Amino acid sequence: KVLVDHGVFEQALYDIKSAIKMNTESTGNGFKSGYASPVSVQSMNLSIVPGEKDLDGLMEQMQNGLVITDLMGLHAGIHFVSTQFSLQASGYKVKDGKRSEPVTLITIAGTFLDLMNHVVAIGNDMDWSYKQVVCPSVLFEKCAVSGE
């Protein structure tokens, strides 16, 4: 199922209950996360189509910037209607296209939809081991960062 094609939203995922509410057909995406859990809409094998460069190639293209390796507070730091986010992050700086010193206790902020309008390149570094949703590295033109 293609959800987004070249930046254009194509379809949503539905289980039977959500499809009835939206007056459409189920996409077969109703799953239980555990025996006692209710059925909910979940994706399976969801990914972004990989690009051509590995992470080192993206850093070379970036020249100077920041690689985010970890985000904290995803359950509370995102407003799912407006797509605004403010999340604690850690990672490392990139200087002259090479990995530099680590950074911790920084905050990245913005709106997800605006961030998606500033994608420069997509990496090819995907790891499917034990995951249902996979995303390669993504190089963004800009994102608000605060902290040391």
Rank of each mutant, 00 (worst) to 15 (best):
Y92I: 03
S33H: 08
D127K: 02
N23V: 06
M116W: 02
A12M: 09
M59R: 06
Y130F: 14
N23M: 11
Y130S: 11
T27F: 10
C143T: 10
V4E: 08
G30V: 10
S33E: 15
V134K: 08
K53T: 04
D15K: 11
D56W: 12
Q61I: 06
M126C: 07
A12T: 12
L74E: 03
A76C: 12
Y130N: 14
L58N: 03
N124M: 04
E60L: 06
P102W: 09
L113E: 13
K98A: 09
M72F: 14
T107R: 14
A89F: 03
L74D: 01
F31W: 14
S129K: 12
Q84M: 08
A121Y: 02
V2G: 01
G110P: 07
G65W: 10
K1G: 12
V41P: 12
T27C: 07
A121I: 03
G57E: 09
I16W: 10
S129L: 11
Q61T: 13
S100N: 09
D70W: 11
G34L: 05
H6E: 15
Y14V: 01
E10T: 14
H118R: 07
M62F: 05
T83K: 08
F112Y: 11
G57V: 11
L74P: 01
W128T: 15
H118F: 02
I16V: 11
N29R: 07
N117G: 10
F80A: 04
E60T: 06
K98D: 05
D96Q: 08
G7H: 03
M72H: 15
S146T: 13
I122M: 02
V41Y: 12
S26V: 05
E148V: 12
N29C: 13
L3D: 11
V138A: 01
M72A: 15
L55N: 09
V94R: 00
P38S: 15
V103P: 04
N64L: 05
L87A: 04
A76Q: 09
L46S: 10
I78E: 00
H75R: 15
V119S: 00
I68W: 00
M59H: 01
E141Q: 10
K95A: 04
G51I: 05
F31P: 02
A89P: 01
F85Y: 13
T104D: 08
N29G: 09
Y130I: 02
T83I: 03
M44F: 10
S82L: 05
D15V: 10
A19K: 05
N117C: 09
T104F: 11
F85V: 06
V134M: 09
K131I: 08
M62C: 08
T111Y: 02
V39F: 15
D56L: 12
G34V: 08
E101K: 14
K17R: 14
M22Y: 13
T111A: 09
